[in-house]
Design a protein around this nucleic acid. Sequence first.
DNA 1: CGTTTTTGACCTGCGC
DNA 2: GCGCAGGTCAAAAACG
Length: 322
Amino acid sequence: MAGNEKVDPEFRASSSWELGGGRHGSDKVSDHGYLFGIDYRESSILSEFGWNIPAESTGGFVDLDRIEFDLAGGGADGFVSVDSSAPRSDDTSYNILEPMVRVEKVEASVSASPSNPSLSSSSSEDPPEKPTDSGVSSAADAATPPSDTASKSSKKKVQKRIRQQRFAFVTKSEVDHLEDGYRWRKYGQKAVKNSPFPRSYYRCTNSKCMVKKRVERSYEDPSVVITTYEGQHCHHSVGLGYPSRGSLSLHLQDPASASYFTTPRPSTSHFIYPQQNSLHNITQLHNQGKGGASHGVQIANSEPLAGQGLLGDIVPPGMRKG
DNA sequence: CGTTTTTGACCTGCGC
DNA sequence: GCGCAGGTCAAAAACG
C-alpha cells in the first residue's frame, strides 16, 4: 500500500497514545492516554506512579535490574519486578529499552451492541461466547440477513468499538513483533500518518481471546518499537519457546513470579498515563485501581501479584493460577 | 491443507 | 456534510 499522504507537522502517534518526548501540548489526544517519555530524573513522577527507583541505581541511568514497580502506589499490594539479570531468550538482537506501565481506563460503553456484556467489566473472566474471527460482529450479524454486499457492510456497523484497557511497551528492538508468550495473528497493517513506518495490528490466535496488539515503530527513533496491548487474555500464554522473531519474555509459567526481562541501562524510561489533566491523573488511577477497579485497572490489585507482571493486566486473575 | 500474512476496501470517529 | 486518519474485514496469496 502506498505510503502516507500529507504530513502533518503535528505528530499524533496514534489514536490513543502520544509519545511524549517532552511535548505535552496536544490539544486533543483522542481516546485514552499518553505514551509519555520521561527522564529518569523525574523520580517524582515515577514515585507518583509507584515506581521505586533505588537511589544508587542511577549513574545517569535507571538500572532496571533494581527497579521495583510498586504498582499499588502506596497501597503496596504488589509489584512487578524487573529482572534483567535473568536469562532471556536470545533469538534476537533487540534490546528491551524500557518497561512500560500502562494505565488505561476502560470505555465500557458497549452501546448498541448487547453481544458482549462481559466486556463491560474488564475483570470478566468469561470469554466472549462466540468470538469468531470477526469477533466484533455477532449481534449485528444475527440481526441482519446475509446478502452479499449488504451483509458485508452490515457486518461492520452497528456496534461500537469497545475499548479495553491498554498498556504499551516501548522497546528498543530491531524486530517489530516481539514474542511475549502468546501467539498473534496479524490482521491488518496501516500506514501511520507522519511516520514512514507502518503500524501492524495483531489479534491473539486463541479464538476465545479478544486481546489485540498494535505494533509500530517510532518515527522519532526508528530503533524503538511501541507495542500496545488491548484487552485481557482469557487464557494462559502458550508455551514459551515459541518460534518467534523476537522475544519479549514475559514469563508467566510461574505466575507468582512473573518477571519481565530486560536489558540493563536504558537511558530513559517511558510510561503511560492517561491523558486529561497531566500528572494528577496518575494518582487518580491508583485510586481507581484500588477502589474496586471494575475497570480493570489492576495495578493496585490486592492479590499477591500472581501474574501481575506486565502481562498481568491482560491475564485475568482467575486465569493466572495454573 | 491448515494457518498466517498481505493488502485493498470499507467502516468509524473526529475535526473543520 | 466532507475529508482525513485510524482501525478492521476478508479474499487471496504465501507459507510450513
